[in-house]
């Protein structure tokens, strides 16, 4: 549930940048023979609609209709009074509030005579919306547009990089704000939230691996207890819709903490080189500090703000090594588990 700062700043996200993205998308739509494209959004899967409009719903859901030409229409079940607010923070597209977004989008599709309709992540598209479109639009054919969308979305333009820079700085500051003097994991993490929100984070998930000796899993505050001998903070954060993560490990033992800090500094210096052989590259990067146990790479993918696109087993289709990515690493340092995560490639 988004409850941090949500505001549009023309200097950060110029309308022209969104128009440019739309133009590139429309070229692909034409290439694919789509009469229209329909994208779904909610707070968990807001990345694609955000990329085109600059907006993520703070609650509820919505559908974006991208016609072959003309204005995009964002239909949402948020209440009528909220439309004015959405317009103030959504620089591209027209907002319509309606209890039935799919019915409204369908009316637009009918008006345009659309038949071949691309749907991002068709398999995951809500069945209720699909049913309405199929029943309302004569001759409608829903076509999965996931790969078509990935053709335009795999990169990261200057506007997105600018937002990511701010998100990264906030995530780092948030992670650095942990309260190390307390044995209580909740108190350890609470300042992270303050720093993130005061810095203008739209969303912040502040999780902790409270005892790295027992598990690497990062838990929410409801499951946090006492901190162990080694522990980690993991911040996932959105600034104006751009998501990143930052994670850092800590040890009660001073010497181990020094080793942890050295590994963190090395992680921060990682520059992507040979992405085809990443396991070996990472093992070498941390040589002398710790042994590589595992790693994951995340990038925005379709409607997902961050999705795992590569790990020790290889890279998934769509991974773009030239675009920024979150690198999540697990090392074994002097017999202790160490976790770190950082945005790479800005």
């Amino acid at each position: 549930m988004r409850r941090g700062l949500m505001a549009w700043d023309q200097a950060e996200v110029p309308k022209s940048a969104l128009e440019q993205r739309l133009a590139v998308l429309r070229a692909v739509m034409k290439d694919e023979g789509f009469d229209a494209l329909v994208l779904y959004t909610n707070i968990a899967r807001g990345a694609s609609v955000w990329w085109l409009t600059g907006f993520t719903p703070y609650w509820n859901e919505g559908l974006l209709h991208v016609p072959a030409q003309g204005e995009m229409v964002f239909a949402t079940a948020l209440s009528k009074r909220v439309a004015e607010w959405i317009e103030s923070v959504m620089p591209a597209g027209r907002v319509v509030t309606t209890p039935k977004p799919a019915a409204l989008i369908s009316a637009g599709l009918v008006k345009d005579g659309a038949k071949r309709i691309g749907v991002l992540e068709l398999d995951d598209f809500p069945a209720g919306h699909a049913k309405i479109i199929l029943e309302t639009v004569p001759g409608a054919q829903l076509v999965d547009a996931t790969f078509a969308f990935a053709r335009v979305r795999s990169g990261s333009d200057a506007v997105e990089r600018g937002l990511l820079l701010k998100a990264d700085a906030l995530a780092r500051a948030s992670c650095a704000a942990v309260e190390l003097s307390t044995p209580d994991a909740r108190a350890f993490m609470a300042p992270c939230e303050t720093v993130a929100r005061l810095g203008g984070a739209e969303e912040c998930f502040a999780l902790a691996s409270t005892d790295l000796g027992a598990s690497r899993a990062a838990v929410r505050t409801e499951a946090m207890g006492a901190l162990g001998a080694t522990f980690a903070a993991r911040i996932s954060l959105a600034y104006k819709g751009a998501w990143t993560r930052h994670a850092r490990s800590f040890a009660r033992d001073e010497k181990l903490q020094e080793a942890f800090d050295a590994a963190h500094a090395r992680l921060m210096n990682f520059k992507p080189t040979d992405m085809l052989n990443l396991s070996a590259v990472l093992a070498k990067h941390f040589e002398g500090l710790g042994d590589l146990v595992d790693f994951t790479i995340e990038q925005p993918r379709g409607s997902y703000p961050l999705a795992a696109v590569a790990n020790h087993a290889g890279a998934a289709e769509g991974f773009n090594p030239a675009a920024p990515f979150v690198l999540d690493v697990e090392l074994q340092i002097n017999g202790a588990r160490w976790l770190g995560a950082h945005l790479v490639g800005l």
Binding site: R3, M6, Y58, V82, E193
Partner: peptide, 29 residues
Amino acid sequence: ESFFRAKGVPENFMIVGVGGQEVRGMAPP
């Protein structure tokens, strides 16, 4: 949010409104 995290609350739905007669509803800040 800081208060709620310290209390072990993982989620909080919260919207706000600030102003006078011109304010017609609540939204994120």
